[in-house]
Design a protein around this nucleic acid. Structure first.
Lengths: 194, 194
DNA sequence: CTCGGATTTGAGCGAGTGCTCAAGAACGGG
DNA sequence: CCCGTTCTTGAGCACTCGCTCAAATCCGAG
């Protein structure tokens, strides 16, 4: 088999394993089993399991970027652009991209060497959210990067909770009440304003 | 040593390990080392490492409940009560309680048997946030349990991100702009309203 | 003190891990 | 066809894991 095909199969296996079994069970033998090849190939092609998992994270970011570009190209005005941003985030949740991200972030806590690598690969997420805000009315409320931090945090948290009681209903209901949640957050800032 | 003392030492060791090294490194030998005793004691007193970690989660919830009760007793009106809610959440982040919670939730994804146990112990968090909202002006915006889901999700997400680029500044700045974030979320709900 | 149950210990088992390595298979240019 | 490079394989090493167990220790009641 060509190198590219084997690499793709391994990356796909790594993505699926991270999504379904989590980082703790993303062993070389498990991933290779899903890819239908020998576990030694991971070390031949990627050098270590960790590098393969980071390659999987890169692949998720790439898929995400392509989808984002397509939606942006379709948008004809600011309102549609903002809608596109929300669509991409919701699709991330459905496709398991957020799950892969959460797994790698959680693993990075226990591994100092992994931390900057994951942080670097998270930048597109924040950057994407910030881009969607730049030039919109929301931008006057604060630096887009700062606001984007909160948006990304909420999506990561929703993924964690969704995994827990495998019922997407609460998250979906939340999206339907996004304006209510906004008012709620205003309420939580009472202390500072009083 | 008395049974209670040994159990307390092991629970404290488990909490510290979860906070600083994460679930993946919360092994029997590591925890027992922090507690200053033999690893076999974990199985004698708790039956398994997993049960000890759940006991640690219970302990965090207990500490949290005590702090909450104290703040509620001090509150003299609705505004102070809401401020107390926010204080408890922020203290959770500082004390590492949220980190313990995030670790256990992430671990529960890979372990179906662990999932309901963690979900049950998460209920106080959601319940606490919901209680703080019940009877307040925010309650008319939607079921308090639903709004509480979003609040808890955001705090969990902030913990994940704070670990990543070990800089608490973004989260702190976000709290200072809680009203801005609220407006931002309104903006993200544009699609449904347009 | 003696005794007996509760507690603690260190050694060790079987399983799973990341990773290496020598050997074989596949493939493509000469 | 042949040969050299690239790719793949299964065995295996050193390590850590959760957990068990027999033996040692502690400690309070009688």
């Amino acid at each position: 088999m060509a190198t590219a095909e084997t690499r793709d199969a391994l990356v796909a296996g790594a993505m699926a394993t991270l999504r379904e079994k989590g980082h703790a069970h993303a062993s070389a033998r498990e991933i290779a089993g899903r890819a239908g090849c020998n576990q030694a190939l991971i070390f031949y092609h990627f050098g270590s399991v960790e590098r393969l998992l980071l390659a999987a994270l890169d692949r998720v970011a790439e898929l995400r970027r392509e989808r984002y570009q397509a939606l942006v190209d379709e948008s004809r005005n600011l309102k549609e652009l903002v809608a596109a941003a929300r669509t991409v985030f919701e699709e991330d949740l459905e496709l398991g991209h957020t799950a892969v991200l959460v797994e790698m972030i959680a693993a990075a806590q226990a591994n100092a060497a992994l931390r900057p690598e994951v942080a670097e690969r998270l930048r597109p997420w924040r950057g994407f959210a910030a881009d969607a805000l730049r030039g919109t009315p929301a931008a006057r409320l604060g630096p887009p990067e700062e606001l984007a931090h909160g948006v990304v945090a909420m999506y990561l948290g929703l993924e964690l909770l969704a995994v827990l009681d495998d019922d997407p209903a609460p998250a979906a209901a939340l999206f339907e009440r996004a304006d209510s949640l906004a008012t709620l957050l205003d309420l939580f800032s009472l202390r500072r304003r009083s």
